[in-house]
Simulated assay, not measured.
Amino acid sequence: MEILEWIQNWFKANCNGEWEHGGGIQIITIDNPGWEVEIDISNTSVANMNLSWILNENSKQDWYGVKIEDQKFFAAGDSGKLIFLLGLFKEMIEKIENV
């Protein structure tokens, strides 16, 4: 399943009449240039998980970072990393759900 289809289905499955009115999913561009992804995980099994900012930087054009805090998954990366960042979120969710 393509990542956009997966994230669309995940969003739909988590809409409960309240959650989607809060943070939901936000994808924005940043001026590095790059992408920023923020996903509200308050209604998931990883809601209380915390992960300090981890930055993986090979160069100014090849980098990404991720953290989990305040019931939000947050990731950012260079302009070629949007699919990768969404994939990190998918991998985390699938790993936790299969435990």
Score class of each variant (00 low, 15 high):
84 F>P: 00
85 L>P: 01
71 Q>Y: 12
83 I>H: 10
47 A>W: 06
24 G>L: 08
10 W>R: 10
73 F>C: 02
60 K>D: 08
16 N>F: 02
15 C>N: 09
40 D>V: 03
32 N>V: 07
96 I>D: 12
47 A>I: 05
57 E>Y: 05
14 N>H: 15
35 W>E: 00
91 E>Y: 10
68 I>W: 01
59 S>V: 06
9 N>K: 14
5 E>N: 12
96 I>K: 13
71 Q>K: 11
46 V>K: 04
27 I>E: 00
68 I>T: 04
96 I>M: 10
27 I>H: 06
82 L>G: 03
29 T>S: 09
91 E>D: 13
77 G>Y: 03
69 E>Q: 14
33 P>D: 06
42 S>K: 01
56 N>Q: 07
37 V>P: 01
62 D>G: 01
40 D>N: 12
6 W>P: 04
13 A>H: 14
40 D>A: 09
78 D>A: 01
42 S>R: 03
68 I>K: 05
93 I>E: 09
80 G>H: 13
87 G>K: 14
17 G>Q: 15
95 K>L: 15
93 I>L: 08
63 W>R: 00
28 I>E: 10
26 Q>D: 02
63 W>E: 00
61 Q>K: 12
41 I>N: 02
83 I>F: 11
31 D>E: 12
66 V>E: 02
8 Q>C: 02
65 G>I: 02
51 L>R: 15
39 I>S: 03
87 G>S: 14
48 N>S: 13
17 G>T: 13
62 D>W: 09
56 N>E: 10
48 N>Y: 13
34 G>I: 05
41 I>S: 05
64 Y>H: 07
86 L>H: 05
58 N>T: 10
61 Q>N: 07
70 D>M: 04
50 N>D: 11
10 W>M: 05
13 A>W: 12
51 L>K: 15
9 N>R: 14
57 E>K: 14
64 Y>F: 07
61 Q>L: 02
84 F>C: 02
80 G>P: 02
58 N>I: 09
23 G>Y: 05
26 Q>C: 07
96 I>E: 15
16 N>E: 04
29 T>D: 02
46 V>A: 11
45 S>P: 02
68 I>E: 00
71 Q>S: 15
11 F>M: 12
47 A>C: 11
59 S>D: 10
5 E>A: 11
74 F>L: 10
99 V>K: 01
5 E>P: 03
92 M>W: 05
40 D>P: 07
21 H>M: 09
71 Q>R: 11
7 I>Y: 06
54 I>D: 06
24 G>D: 08
81 K>F: 03
98 N>G: 07
91 E>S: 07
27 I>C: 02
45 S>V: 06
61 Q>P: 00
54 I>K: 08
10 W>N: 07
13 A>V: 13
30 I>T: 13
32 N>Y: 08
57 E>L: 03
70 D>Y: 07
49 M>S: 09
39 I>K: 11
60 K>S: 05
37 V>G: 00
51 L>D: 11
55 L>P: 03
88 L>T: 04
79 S>P: 02
